[in-house]
Amino acid sequence: MSLDSDITSVSLSGAFLATLRRDLLLAYRRRSDFMNPLAFFLIVCSLFPLGIGPNPQQLALLAPGILWVVALLACMLASDTLFRHDFDDGSLEQMILSPAPLYLQVMAKTLSHWLLTGFPLTLLSPLLAVLLQLPSSGLLALCLSMAIGSASLSFIGAIGAGLTVGLRKGGLLLSLIILPLYIPVLIFGVSTVKSAVDGLPYIGTLAVLGAFLAMAVTLAPLAIAAAVKISVDN
């Protein structure tokens, strides 16, 4: 109940880290929630060899596309819940009313979202690549492109999640908003892996993915913060 006459300043890094820590802790407490997209990735990828036959040449041809499309769908599946719980329990209002910029806080939330979806997907992908007979020359490119690309997917997904969080049934709308924005990442992600498999230099397409990420990290939080404010305003 102290009444400090001077303006209480908020530490920016403190607010960023507190939000990041809280989200990771929440995911740890609700482990089944964040396992869902990973289980989806694992199950769908392991169903493909059963569906299209175990012919190694055929699988190897399709592997980069399968891995990337399924990872993309898993990211989309996960982004729906990004702001849902915070919206329902009023935490989002408190984030907007914090003196720390909303830009930093949504960035922390998106980063924790990537650490819980994109990062584990990246770690799982070499395992599934072996299952899908992807030549070993493509493994490193797959991991790199997946790590960089999925981070962009998280930031793009967060824009859609922020816009649809106020709607009761935002699921379909969310996919309509973010899928078109996912497509460039998908194209360059798959072509990175394909170039590596064919023995071509893949650093160029990887650099394009990196450029996407640089743009997403700097600009997407502006859009996410604005989207979240609009959703709470209603």
């Binding site: 209480t8 908020v10 809280r22 329990d89 009023g90 935490s91 209002e93 009313l97 003196p99």
Partner: peptide, 17 residues
């Protein structure tokens, strides 16, 4: 904002924490 404290209908308390 640094001088305002708002407590709304939903209190912003996470049940899992």
């Amino acid at each position: 904002l640094s001088q305002l404290l708002y407590i709304g209908h939903s209190s912003g308390v996470k049940a899992a924490l």
